[in-house]
């Protein structure tokens, strides 16, 4: 564990807490893409299949359980909570996300570290995570106005990936024979997807104005 990875995990955790806070405090999921949240639930479930086979550390296991439970809780709220579900922007959240799932799985069948069920699903989860934010970004762009908590949620989610890139650079420099081709490449793609959002987030932050994305 180094400071970059810890910072990445903490910003990731913070992003999820912000989203839960937004949903509970405002009883609204307006501006939140249920499709992105469902993709994250799939990502965590398929990546953490090793919960049952490999023990890394108490921290590792704890975080995995938190990520799976929180993503399922968010999806549950958006689908079934009697009040929250009514604020779901169904007509704006129309990204065809099954395409992302299919493409990620196909890529995992081609590019993986080892051809086994667990390794193919692990690679699948990495590829899917890289693009899982797309429905959320499309929804934000369509709705134009972004409320503060949703904006901060996306910002911290992007920050998490940026910290992980620093973590890989650090590990590459300090650990012998350290390579993370699959995670590293996907991580760069994932972070790049946030570039546009980051740009407008910083502009609004600098001007102390509400975040607006151009149509």
């Amino acid at each position: 564990m180094n400071v970059f990875r810890l910072a990445g995990d903490m910003t990731h955790l913070l992003s999820i807490l912000l989203l839960l806070l937004k949903i509970y405090a405002t009883k609204s999921c307006s501006g939140v893409s249920r499709k992105t949240q469902e993709l994250y639930a799939i990502v965590f479930i398929f990546r953490y299949l090793d919960l049952f086979t490999d023990f890394i550390s108490v921290y590792n296991t704890f975080m995995k359980v938190v990520f799976i439970a929180s993503s399922l809780a968010i999806v549950w709220c958006m689908r079934f909570h009697p009040v929250v579900r009514r604020s779901y922007d169904r007509e704006l959240d129309t990204f065809r996300y099954f395409f992302l799932v299919g493409a990620s799985f196909a890529l995992a069948l081609i590019w993986h570290e080892k051809f086994s069920v667990q390794e193919v699903f692990w690679a699948f989860s990495i590829y899917l995570e890289a693009v899982a934010i797309l429905p959320q970004l499309v929804l934000l762009q369509r709705s134009g106005n972004v409320d503060n908590l949703t904006g901060q949620y996306v910002f911290f989610l992007g920050a998490y990936r940026a910290f992980y890139i620093l973590n890989w650079i650090y590990r590459y420099l300090t650990e012998p024979r350290f390579t993370r081709w699959i995670a590293g490449t996907s991580g760069v793609v994932q972070t790049a997807l946030y570039a546009d959002f980051f740009y407008y987030y910083f502009i609004s932050w600098k001007n102390n104005s509400k975040l607006k994305l151009p149509a």
């Binding site: 990875r5 990546r47 090793d50 490999d54 890394i56 995995k64 990520f67 570290e113 080892k114 992980y164």
Partner: peptide, 10 residues
């Protein structure tokens, strides 16, 4: 053959 490393990251 080379075994994949344990995935120690989240």
């Amino acid at each position: 053959t080379e075994q994949p490393e344990v995935h120690d990251e989240l």
